[in-house]
Amino acid sequence: MIPGAPVRDRHVVGVGLPRVLWVPALVGLALIALPVVGLVVRADLARFPELVTGGAALSALGLSLRTAAVSTLLCLLFGGPLAAVLARSGAPGLRLIRPIVLLPLVLPPVVGGLALLYTVGRTGFGGRVLELWFGITVPFTTAAVVLAQTFVSMPFLVVSLEGALRTAGERYESVAATLGASPATVFRRVTLPLVLPGVGSGLVLAFARALGEFGATIAFAGSLQGTTQTLPLLVYQVREVDVDGAVALSLVLVVVAVLVIAVARPRAAEGLG
C-alpha cells in the first residue's frame, strides 16, 4: 500500500492534452535544463580532476558534506517531532505556527542569515547569553554554518513529513490502539513505518538544500577557508579569478544534485505536493 511511482498503463488513452501546452512546457524545460548544459559545455573536462582536487576545493567539499550531514541530522531531530506535532496534535494555536515554519522557504536566505546574526551574534540577545554564560561565540564558526543550513532546510523536512503523516491518516493508529498498543508502541510500530518514505524524501531534500546553502551562510558565517567556506561559497569566491575552477566545482554540485534527485525523486514530488 505504500505508493511508489505511479505506473502508467500504456493502454489508457485518457482525454488527451491540448497540443498547444507542449510549447510553453518545452520552453520551461529548456529554461531549467539548458543552463546545466551550458555549464557542461564550458567546463574544461581535461583539467577537471586537477581543478576539483585542489586544496581549497577538497576542503570546501569536505566541509559542505560534513555540515550538510549535521544539519540534516538536526532537521530530523527537531523537525521530525515538529512535523508530528503539526500533523497530530489538536492543540489550539497550531494554525498560527505553520506559517512560521514555512518562513525560511519564502524568505531570502540572506535575510535569514542577518536574522541569525542579530539573534545569536555578539550583539544579539541569544548571542550575549551564550557568550557570557558559556563563553561560546557562534558567528563565523562552523557551528554558524550548520545553524544557517538547518534554518533554511528545516521546512523541507517538516513539510514533506507532515504531508506523509496526513496522508497516512490516523485510522491505522486508532486500530492499533484498540489492539492494545500504547501511544509509544503505536508511534514506533505503526506511525513511523508508515511515514518512513516521507522521512526519507524529507531528509534528502533537506540535505540538498543544506548543501546548496549560500546566502544565510555568507551573512552569518562568512567565508573562511576550512572553517566556514562551503562549496557554494568557494564557487562564488573563485568565479572571477579562476573561471575554470568555478565551473568545475559547480559541476561537482550539479552531480551531487542529480544524485540526490535520482534517490528521492518520486516521493519528494508527492511530499511537497
Binding site: 500500500m1 485510522r171 486508532s174 484498540t178 492494545g180
Partner: peptide, 17 residues
C-alpha cells in the same frame, strides 16, 4: 483506548500495510 480491551473492526480492513 489501548487499555479498554475493546476491539474494533471497521468497514475497511485497515491492515497495517
Amino acid at each position: 483506548a489501548h487499555r479498554r480491551r475493546v476491539g474494533l473492526l471497521a468497514q475497511q480492513a485497515l491492515l497495517f500495510p
